[in-house]
């Protein structure tokens, strides 16, 4: 299996150049970031771009920093960098959990956060994690304008995201969690490093007495895109998190999130996984909030 012939290959070195090329080649072009999904799609001839715009030489598109109360992650930040970055491990642990769960070491050395979100696989690790953290994407357009879009709206459906042919995601922004917040992410897959059958991301904020102030729970591995378990999250709100409450949250999430049969697992099995995984992940998130 080999990619179809590529007419044009460009390796621009700054964002302005990328946008000019996008404007010129638009619909026949594909942006190549880590390439860990795009290359297999090209080999399978499910993607046949005439023009490749390789982003890997673009400077300053991979930095990770905190600024104005937000975490900024450059579009090209590799999974291996997100998984090990001190700021992310310290304050955005669920994101590091998600990054560590993607593929294998070689894939994590190449794959990028924006690439994963644009690809929008409903079973991928980043989408539920970035949703649970209320992340936004900053998108640049060839005319020089930029827009910011909430990840919930950016993810449109299976392998569909809200990105125009003349647009480039330049970074992901995540609001810094308040004190006593913590998050966790876990997934179930058929084999190590595979896409999720079910994944759960949770971000919890507690007060000093251990009462849950705010909770966000997102379930991945469901169609058409990751789903917020809002009833489960609201159950936790205003209460001290104990074993009974955790069980109830798991039940509520299994009830409210719709599951489907596919090649990986049945709808029933997925529901059962949600029932047992939500309590586990919320417990871990809550423990991290206490630290």
């Amino acid at each position: 299996m080999y990619p179809k012939a590529i007419e044009n290959y460009f390796a621009p070195t700054d964002v302005a150049e990328v946008l000019t090329l996008l404007n010129q080649y638009g619909e026949q072009a594909k942006l190549l970031a880590g390439g860990q999904s795009l290359m297999p799609l090209m080999k399978l001839r499910l993607a046949e771009p005439q023009t490749i715009i390789d982003l890997n030489q673009v400077a300053a598109l991979d930095d990770i920093r905190e600024e104005d109360g937000r975490l900024h992650i450059g579009a090209l930040a590799r999974h291996s960098e997100v998984a090990t970055h001190p700021i992310i491990l310290q304050s955005y642990a669920l994101l590091a959990d998600a990054a560590r769960n993607i593929g294998d070491p070689q894939i994590r050395n190449r794959g990028t956060i924006a690439g994963s979100l644009v690809h929008a696989d409903p079973s991928a690790d980043y989408p539920p994690a970035v949703m649970a953290l209320d992340g936004q994407l900053v998108v640049a357009k060839a005319d020089g304008s930029t827009r910011t879009v909430l990840v919930d709206d950016f993810l449109a459906g299976p392998l569909m995201s809200d990105i125009g042919e003349d647009e480039l995601v330049t970074r992901i922004e995540i609001p810094a969690p308040v004190a006593q917040s913590g998050g966790a992410y876990a997934k179930h897959s058929q084999v190590a490093g595979d896409f999720a059958i079910i994944s759960v991301a949770a971000q919890i904020t507690r007060d000093p007495s251990g009462v849950c102030q705010q909770a966000s729970i997102v379930v991945g591995g469901v169609m058409p895109k990751p789903c917020r378990a809002e009833q489960a999250a609201s159950l936790l709100q205003g209460k001290a998190i104990d074993a009974t409450l955790l069980t109830q949250a798991g039940e509520a999430a299994a009830e409210e999130v719709e599951t489907e049969d596919d090649v990986r697992a049945s709808a029933d099995y997925r529901r059962q996984l949600i029932r047992v995984t939500v309590p586990e992940v919320v417990r871990q998130a809550s423990a991290r909030a206490e630290e």
Partner: peptide, 8 residues
């Protein structure tokens, strides 16, 4: 370490 079949 990278997979050489996933790079041009």
């Amino acid at each position: 370490a990278v997979k050489a079949c996933l790079l041009l």
